[in-house]
């Protein structure tokens, strides 16, 4: 518990630090030196909390127009939340399915091959390739696969979901496959095999149970990957999610901090939701 509180404090501090960084770093153009002006930090943080205490979230600029964050954050928050939630859900589902339960089938061989190929491609390159492909599909066939308009509805949101799912899927799938391979060599598996248990049963009762702790432990990492890609995807695909506040505010600490805290909140929600799903799965299928 203490550790979680410590962790939260560190994350909050880190977010405030990042949000204020553009105001703290001073570049002296005459002799080209960089200096850090930490004395700014307390006042910026103070202003941030003062703004929150008045019940408003502050304002941000779109071009020259000043807008209230509170009036826009709702839609943006849910857009980002859906993307991350679906992305992480897909990645856990696929990696568990192909990593453990279907791992021995020929079909998985193809899936593994595809995953291996995709995993050699860095996410951002994959995202650009996917975009190029989408643009070219429209050019060749006239079918609009994606939309870059923020109000494009489903066309605007399904593509980001898939793109966000890719990196965590690869990560989790590799992790689970490796673990599966290692665990399959353990003595208790030999005992289970010797007892004549079916493979599916061993997978559920022996393997999954031993992989789950690793899955939970790496959930934070998976979320981090998803959030990281969310930034890129929202930015490139012009999705109006929370990253809008982070990238469009040109160094203004208020919207950056709000955006990052929103992200933190999203990942907490998704984390909790995934733990819940895993718990339900365990209660439903696995003997304790």
């Amino acid at each position: 518990m203490v550790r979680y509180i410590q962790q939260m404090i560190i994350v909050i501090f880190l977010i405030l630090f990042l949000a204020t960084l553009p105001s703290i770093v001073l570049v002296d153009p005459t002799n080209g030196t960089v200096s850090l002006n930490f004395s700014q930090f307390p006042s910026i943080v103070g202003n941030f909390f003062k703004e929150l205490s008045t019940g408003s979230l502050g304002t941000f600029y779109v071009g020259m127009e000043q807008r209230s964050i509170a009036s826009e954050i709702g839609d943006n928050f849910f857009t980002s939340f859906y993307i991350v939630f679906v992305g992480v859900f897909i990645s856990i589902l696929f990696s568990l399915l192909f990593g453990i339960f279907l791992s021995r089938f020929y079909l998985t061989k193809i899936f593994r091959l595809i995953m291996n190929i995709i995993s050699t491609i860095p996410d951002f390159i994959f995202i650009i390739f996917a975009l190029l492909l989408a643009v070219n599909i429209y050019k060749w066939t006239g079918i609009r696969v994606v939309s870059f308009l923020p109000n494009g509805g489903a066309l605007n949101i399904w593509f980001p979901m898939v793109l966000v799912a890719i990196a965590p899927s690869i990560y989790l799938f590799k992790l689970i496959s490796e673990r599966y391979f290692l665990i399959a060599g353990e003595d208790y598996i030999r005992t289970a095999v010797a007892k004549g248990l079916k493979i599916d049963r061993i997978n559920f009762q022996h393997v999954f149970k031993n992989i789950e702790p690793f899955l939970v432990a790496d959930l934070v990492k998976v979320l981090s990957l998803a959030i990281g890609n969310l930034f890129i995807v929202e930015y490139l695909l012009n999705v109006s999610g929370l990253t809008k506040f982070v990238f469009q505010s040109s160094g203004d600490p208020q919207p950056i901090a709000i955006g990052l805290f929103g992200m933190l909140f999203i990942s907490l929600l998704v984390f909790a939701a995934m733990r819940l799903l895993l718990y339900l799965f365990k209660r439903g299928f696995i003997y304790e």
Binding site: Q6, V11, L14, L18, A19, L21, V25, V220, S224, I227
Partner: peptide, 26 residues
């Protein structure tokens, strides 16, 4: 525990985001 907490918190924030804010001003 603070080391573990720090590692956890650090791994949550995407690395490129930290770099982005560090390099943005310079």
């Amino acid at each position: 525990s603070f080391i573990i907490a720090f590692e956890g918190a650090w791994s949550y924030v995407p690395a490129f985001l930290i770099l982005y804010f560090c390099l943005l001003p310079i």
